[in-house]
Write a protein that binds this DNA or RNA. Structure first.
Lengths: 337, 337
DNA sequence: AGGCATGATTTGATCGTTCAAGTTAAGGAA
DNA sequence: TTCCTTAACTTGAACGATCAAATCATGCCT
C-alpha cells in the first residue's frame, strides 16, 4: 500500500513550507495564486489527504457527528429512523462530516455514552432522535454548551431552547381525517398511544382538530393502546363493537393501522351482525408495509428532515443561531381509505 | 463543561509519570498492583478518558470501522441491511470499536471512498455488504493488505481469499421447498432474479435441490425477473396461467412473494377458470412486511451474523487467521404456506 | 562485596497538523 | 537614502498519547 503521504511530503515536492501547503488548502486567500496552483497539483499527484487525527489534535474539531442507533428494532416502524439515517449520512458527507454510531438503552446510558464519546472521539456535534417530555439528554448537552440538533421538537420546554427539526404530526392526522371527511365519513375514530407521549398526543390532537372543524364530537371515539399489530386489532374491534356507526379509523402508526385493517377487512365480522360495513383505515409513517398492503398513510419527508438537521447543526457549529423547523407531512392515499 | 483531562493531569495527581498511567490502563501487568490501583482511582476521580486522536497519531489505530450505508432504499428489503447494521453497532461497541458510515453509488465510488477514509479517519477495518461477482472492492482491499470482512461470500473467488460471514441462501429455499413438499405440494415453482447474481442463483439452487431430492423435474417451473412487487405479481400470473398444476410458489425475496401473494389470494382469478386453487407462497428475508401479512419466509440470523463479522474482523486486526462462516437460516412458517 | 538479572518507573522523542510569531523581500512615503 | 507597511512565506511550538530507551532500585548468586 502506498505509504502515508504527509503535508511535509507535499511541501518538499512543491518546494514550499508545510504551513504554505496548509494555507493553500485551508486559507487559499493568503497564498499567491500560482503557488496555490502548484501546491494543489502536488497534492493531487501524491494523493495527499489531511490526517484528521492530527488536525483534530491541533484544532479540536473531529468532523464527526454522533448519532444513536437503537438495538435491533424489528418492528414495522423501525424503518422511519433508518430512512432518516440514510438521508443524514448523505447530508453529513456533503458538509464534510461523517456519522459515528453508538447505542444506548435509555437516557442515562445515553448521557454516559456522550461522556465516553466526548472523551474518546470528540464528535463535533450530536443528532438526537425521539425526543420526549423531560428529556434529560438535551438539558445535559445544553448545560455543557455542546452543539446538537434534535429530530423531534422539545416537548416540555419552549420551542427555542435548542435547535430542532420535526414533522408536524398533528397536521398529518388532521389531513388524514379531513380526507376521510371529504369522502363522506362522519363517525371517525382514533387509535393512538397512551397520553403523555408528545408525539402521540400531538397526533391525536390533529384528529380532534379536524373533527372540531367539521362540527363533530370526538367523545367516545378514541382509544389508547401500546403500539403493536395485535393492540391495533383489539382497539379496532373494541371501537367497532361499541359504536356501530363508526366507518373510519385514523391510527397513530402503521402497526396499529395494520391491526385495524385486519378487523376492517374481515369479511364476516363477529363484532357486527348487520350487513357488511366497509371501514376505512389510515396509518402513519408510510412504512414499506403500508405501501405493500395498500394502506393510506401519512408520509414524513425524512430525507428532507435529515438535510435540514444537518443544516441547523452546521450553523450551530459555526456559531450562527440555528433556529428550528417544522416540516409538513403529506398524505399518501391508497386503497385502505 | 469540565476542562479536558489529559494523561498528564492524572499523572500529576497520582504522583507518577505519564507513562505509568498509560501502562496502568493498557499494560496493567507491568505496573505494581498498588500503583495501578491508585492510578485507576485518580482516573475515576478526574473522569479521565483517553483521547483517541492522540492515541491514533502514535499507534495508527483509530478504533473505527467503516461501513457503507446505501442511499435511502425505501423498498421492502432495505430492512435486512438495517437490522444487520443495528447488530453490528452493538457487537462493535462490545469490542471497543465504533462504526463510521459512508455512502457510495457503485464499486468505483466506494473504492474512492476507501481512499478518502483511509487518508482522513484511518479506520482500522471495513465491513462490506452485498458482495457480487468480480467484486472490485475486495481485490482492492486485498492488494493493499487492509483488514476487512464481508457479509456475503466471495462469488467469483475461492472461499478463503478473504474472511466472510454469510447466510446459506440455498439452504433457506431448500427448507422452504421441503416444507411445501411435506405439506403435499408436488408442482412447486420458483420466482427469482435473472441469473448471474450470486445470491439469486444460490437461492434458485436450493429450490432445485429440494425438487431433485424428491425426484421431481424443475423444467418450466422457474421465472427470472427484477426484484419488485409488480414483478412478482406478473411472474406468478405467468406461471399459474402456463401450468394449471402449480400449487406453490417459492420466491427469492419478500417483495416478489408479496406480489405473488396478490395473485394467489385473488378470490376469482382470471388466469384460471377452474375451481379455486389455494396457492402457497414463501418469501425470503422475513421482513416486517412478511410478519405483518402472514407470509411464510426464510429468516436470516442477522444479529448473529453481525456478531460473527465483528469476531472475524477482530481476528483480522489481531493478525489471527480469521476464516469464514456460513450460517443456517430458519424458516418462519405463517399462514401463506 | 561485586556483578547481574529483573521489576518498576521515568524521560525524551515522535506521530501530522495548525497556530502564533518570525523572517524576507518588495513597494511607497518622507 | 531611510523607515515603515504589507504580502508571502517559513519556523518553532503545541495538541495528547505511546514507543523506545534510560534510570533506579531490589534481590539473588557467587
Amino acid at each position: 500500500m502506498a505509504d502515508k503521504v504527509t503535508i511535509a511530503d507535499v511541501a518538499r515536492v512543491a518546494g514550499v513550507s508545510r504551513q504554505t501547503v496548509s494555507n493553500a488548502l485551508n486559507t487559499p486567500e493568503v497564498v499567491r495564486p500560482e503557488t496555490r496552483q502548484r501546491v494543489l497539483e502536488v497534492v493531487e499527484e501524491l494523493g495527499y489527504r489531511v490526517n484528521f487525527a492530527a488536525r483534530q489534535m491541533r484544532t479540536g474539531r473531529s468532523k464527526l457527528i454522533a448519532i444513536r442507533i437503537d438495538p435491533a428494532g424489528d418492528g414495522v416502524n423501525g424503518s422511519v429512523f433508518d430512512r432518516f439515517l440514510h438521508g443524514l449520512t448523505e447530508s453529513a458527507a456533503g458538509a464534510g462530516y461523517r456519522l459515528l454510531l453508538y447505542t444506548a438503552a435509555d437516557d442515562q446510558k445515553e448521557i454516559a455514552a456522550f461522556q465516553d464519546l466526548l472523551g474518546a472521539y470528540e464528535p463535533d456535534g450530536f443528532v438526537l432522535t425521539s425526543t420526549h417530555h423531560k428529556d434529560a439528554r438535551t438539558s445535559w448537552l445544553l448545560e455543557r454548551g455542546l452543539p446538537f440538533v434534535t429530530f423531534g421538537r422539545p416537548w416540555s420546554e419552549p420551542a427555542d431552547v435548542h435547535p430542532w427539526v420535526d414533522v408536524d404530526g398533528s397536521a398529518g392526522t388532521e389531513a388524514a381525517t379531513e380526507h376521510l371527511l371529504a369522502a363522506g365519513h362522519r363517525r371517525i375514530a382514533f387509535i393512538g398511544w397512551p397520553s403523555g407521549s408528545g408525539v402521540g398526543d400531538d397526533r391525536r390532537e390533529g384528529w380532534r382538530r379536524a373533527l372540531a372543524g367539521a362540527g363533530l364530537d370526538p367523545a367516545g371515539l378514541s382509544r389508547e393502546t401500546p403500539d403493536g399489530i395485535a393492540d391495533g386489532e383489539a382497539a379496532a374491534r373494541d371501537l367497532l363493537t361499541a359504536d356501530p356507526d363508526i366507518t373510519a379509523l385514523v391510527c397513530a402508526s402503521d402497526s396499529l393501522a395494520l391491526g385495524a385493517l385486519h378487523v376492517a377487512r374481515s369479511p364476516n365480522p363477529a363484532w357486527h351482525a348487520e350487513a357488511y360495513r366497509r371501514i376505512a383505515v389510515t396509518g402513519f409513517d408510510d412504512t414499506p408495509v403500508a405501501k405493500a398492503i395498500g394502506l393510506t398513510s401519512v408520509h414524513q419527508p425524512l430525507t428532507d428532515a435529515a438535510a435540514r438537521c444537518m443544516d441547523l447543526l452546521g450553523r450551530a457549529l459555526d456559531g450562527t443561531p440555528p433556529g428550528n423547523l417544522l416540516l409538513p407531512p403529506s398524505l399518501v392515499v391508497r386503497q385502505s381509505a
